[in-house]
Amino acid sequence: MHALEIVWDPIKFLDLGFFKLHFYSVMWIVAFIIGFLITKRIYRHEGQSDESLDSLFIYSVLGIMLGARLGHVIFYQPDLITDDFFSIFLPFKFKDGFEFTGFQGLASHGAAIAMIISMYLYNKKVLKKTVLWILDRVVIPVALGAVFVRIGNFINSEIIGKETGSDFGVVFTQLGENVARHPAQLYEAGCYIFVFLILLFTYWKTKKSDQQGFLFGLFLVLLWSVRFVVEYYKEPQSGEYLSNAIGNVLNNGQILSIPFIVIGLYFMFIYKPKTN
Results as ranks from 00 to 15, higher is better:
Ser118Leu: 06
Gln237Asp: 08
Gln48Gly: 07
Ala112Gln: 09
Ala180Phe: 09
Phe216Ile: 00
Met27Thr: 14
Met1Asp: 03
Thr173Cys: 12
Tyr203Gly: 00
Phe103Thr: 04
Glu188Met: 05
Arg137Asn: 02
Trp204Met: 01
Leu70Met: 06
Phe214Tyr: 07
Ile81His: 07
Leu56Asp: 01
Phe172Pro: 10
Arg69Cys: 10
Ile33His: 08
Phe201Ala: 03
Ala68Ile: 12
Ala107Leu: 04
Ile155Trp: 04
Ala112Lys: 00
His109Phe: 09
Ser209Ala: 08
Ile134His: 04
Gly264Met: 08
Ile255Cys: 11
Ala31Pro: 07
Phe103Asn: 02
Ser166Glu: 14
Val142Leu: 13
Pro183Asn: 10
His2Gln: 13
Phe267Val: 12
Lys93Ser: 14
Asn153Glu: 05
Leu242Phe: 12
Val126Tyr: 13
Phe194Cys: 10
Phe228Val: 01
Gln212Ile: 07
Asn153Gly: 11
Gln185Ala: 12
Ile113Glu: 02
Ile134Trp: 09
Glu188Gln: 08
Val139Tyr: 10
Glu235Arg: 13
Leu256Gln: 03
Lys208Trp: 00
Ile255Lys: 00
Leu186Ile: 09
Phe18Thr: 02
Thr130His: 09
Ala143His: 02
Phe154Ala: 07
Phe154Cys: 13
Asp210Asn: 14
Phe219Lys: 01
Phe92Pro: 02
Gln185Met: 07
Ile34Glu: 04
Ser118Ile: 03
